[in-house]
Amino acid sequence: MTQPATAAPKDAPTSAAESAEEKGSSRLTALRWDVRTLSLLGVLAVLVAVGGITAPDEFLATSNLQLVLTQASVIGVVTVGMTFVITSGGIDLSVGAMVALASVWATTVATQDFGFAGILFTAVIVGVGCGLVNGLLIAYGRMVPFIATLAMLASARGLALQITDGSTQVVTVQSVLDLGGRDSYVLGIPPLVLIFAAVTVIGWLLLNRTTFGRRTVAVGGNAEAARLAGIDVRRQRLYLYLLSGLCCGIAAFMLIVLAGSGQNTNGNLYELDAIAAAIIGGTLLSGGRGTIVGSVLGVLIFTTITNIFALNNLETAVQQIAKGAIIVAAVLVQRRSPHGDA
């Protein structure tokens, strides 16, 4: 790479000017980050205002807010796992199917014999098991994540249908049912919301404060550079799909508590909701940047929209269109920011 001699002075600005410019732009980076989160909070605030105006009595009622948060919790836990996978440059299409399979496996008559612990344990293990298969196929079988998890989507749903034969498996374990009841609320907060909060905090710490998180970002940002830097990229990928499976197992347990049953239709289209929430939150679909806070805000925005539409008796069709429009708007906004193009 030779360069013309006359251009040298132009290309080599004084170090002082150079560093001043660079510092300025790095500060700008930090600022933009906040702008992104703030704008999501702004959207959420507007939605709350809209809800408060269009359905003043119902929307702001404590029971409604509890309902919104509870609904957000199940998909929220799935989204936290999805955020990690997407940050690493992957995708997990099987989350909904894993939730379904875990929820029916954990509610079979045989499992329910083991009570609360049996149900929780089975849900988590089934989720982790599915994640393990995904991870092995992707990391060591060198399958494209899209295909491997698509195959898991089909198989897990099929297996869930086979287990239930299409019927709803009602939970008879009282301690599980109690967890969904009003009596177990802590200071007015449903336990499922607390689980979601815990998963969010742990997810944030894991992504932002640990070697695991740093490696996830490195693999997603530049897998080749990560490999040449001595990171075991394949093992990292395996762990990420395991993590997504684990989140699905937890979400399946939460759904069992919420519905008091296990069904093979559970978690339908969760993959789309989780991906959409992560993307509007600011996680890059191409990998290399992920934000747990953004994903959680994305989930809350979606759930709030659903709630407002339901309270105003609007059709599901309109609601779907609104969701689609929000995804497009969010991605267009990201595209305009300087990081979005990486």
């Binding site: 070697t211 740093r214 940002g221 530049n222 550079a225 990560a226 990171i231 290399g288 990486a342």
Partner: peptide, 26 residues
């Protein structure tokens, strides 16, 4: 293409091969 994490800071780029040295239990 082969060395840098372009979305990251200088610090993250420098420490990426040495992460475990700065980590206790991850």
């Amino acid at each position: 293409a082969q060395a840098l994490l372009m979305l990251e800071s200088v610090s993250s780029n420098v420490s990426v091969s040495t992460l475990s040295r700065f980590a206790r239990a991850g």
